[in-house]
């Protein structure tokens, strides 16, 4: 693996809802209320190599978007450290941190709500490079044209407003805006989920072409395992804020280790399956306000045993480059003497 462009070490993000005045009053008379804390991201470590496409997969509420936002610098991490090109963000001076922040850009799910409806496309794309002094004012117009051509938009439309474009074109505007500051790293948060099938294919192809042309690195957040399998080199599976499994895409789809990953893969609807009986993992993702103790997945896991209810499983290597957090891996070793 080449030098990681970005590394996360034990990163956590907590959201705290403090008590309001009435609740503090209630506490005075002994109501015993406490702050509500959501561990949106709980101790995630991850290294992403230059040029790699890493898929981040999980159900709603598993913290995948929060992790993406921490990586993109939108939320500060509550704990842990982030390294950009080997340098800790905490040790950088203001100028370096500013530069690192520009290098990581984010593309959101809903292309319309991410664009200011009162700005023309040329302003949307040109604002950041102008503000950051990346492009001299005299060359701004030509730069905007270049970027629009690169993402497959006709520069003749640069005077238009976002509402005058279709959904797929709007997502291209979002991509153009992210590319305008010459980033190295794109965080794509469900960036193709809102698009029609044929448009989705166009945008996925655009992402892959840009990766070649601009040697970009991606963190690709998605719930769509079909898309992830198609474009990602490596896949991270998250459940209730924790990473439960990580492996190369081939390895993960061929030999999923964690029961949650196995269940997710079984649910992926595929074109070649006909009139199949849908069999579902039971239940839903629990509230992150009160996550179950031990392994978060144990209430839904068909293989859960006593240890799962008490002890949090650690991420262990089950094959080269393949890590998984499940007690079954230990149990299998003890009982049969072979690893899974």
């Amino acid at each position: 693996m080449s030098e990681p462009i970005l590394a996360l070490r034990n990163v956590s993000k907590r959201f705290v809802k403090s008590l309001d005045a009435a609740e503090r009053m209630a506490n005075l008379v002994g109501a015993g209320l406490a702050d509500e804390v959501v561990h949106a991201v709980d101790g995630v470590s991850l290294e992403i190599a230059t040029g790699e496409v890493v898929g981040l997969v999980g159900e709603s509420g598993c913290g995948k978007s929060t992790l993406g936002r921490v990586v993109a610098g939108i939320h500060p991490a509550s704990e842990g450290e982030m390294l950009f090109r080997g340098k800790r963000l905490a040790e950088m001076n203001a100028a370096e941190r500013h530069e690192a922040a520009l290098r990581v850009q984010m593309i959101f799910q809903d292309p319309m709500s991410a664009l200011n409806p009162r700005m023309r496309v040329a302003e949307i794309i040109g604002e950041a490079p102008r503000f950051h002094g990346i492009v001299p004012r005299s060359e701004l117009s030509a730069t905007v044209d270049d970027i629009m051509l690169r993402v497959g938009l006709d520069p003749a439309y640069k005077r238009r407003y976002p509402h005058q474009f279709s959904g797929g074109q709007r997502q291209r505007i979002n991509i153009a805006r992210a590319l305008a500051v010459n980033p190295d790293f794109l965080v794509c948060d469900e960036s193709v989920a809102a698009l029609d099938v044929s448009i989705q294919a166009q945008v996925i192809n655009l992402f892959m072409r840009l990766r070649e042309e601009l040697s970009l690195t991606y963190l690709f957040i998605s719930h769509d395992l079909g898309v992830v399998e198609h474009i990602c080199d490596r896949v991270v599976i998250m459940y209730l804020g924790r990473m439960v499994e990580m492996a190369s895409t081939e390895e993960l789809f061929a030999r999923a280790n964690h029961p949650y990953t196995q269940a997710l893969l079984a649910e992926v609807p595929r074109l070649d399956q006909r009139k199949r009986t849908f069999a579902a993992i039971k239940g839903e993702i629990p509230s992150p306000l009160h996550p179950p103790p031990g392994c978060h997945f144990h209430p839904r896991c068909p293989h859960a045993f006593d240890r799962c209810r008490a002890e949090r499983p650690a991420l262990r290597e089950v094959a080269p480059g393949h890590i998984s957090a499940c007690h079954l891996n230990d149990a299998a070793k003890h009982s049969t003497g072979t690893s899974l």
């Binding site: 279709s166 797929g168 074109q169 029609d196 099938v197 044929s198 448009i199 989705q200 294919a201 166009q202 996925i204 192809n205 892959m208 072409r209 079909g226 898309v227 399998e229 198609h230 474009i231 895409t249 595929r270 074109l271």
Partner: peptide
């Protein structure tokens, strides 16, 4: 044919998806 071609699937990993040009 175009719609089915644009569904990411197992056997075409990493290759560009066949896409329908233009839009509705």
């Amino acid at each position: 044919v175009g719609l089915i071609g644009s569904v990411p699937s197992h056997n075409k990993r990493g290759q560009p998806l066949s896409q329908i040009p233009g839009m509705t």
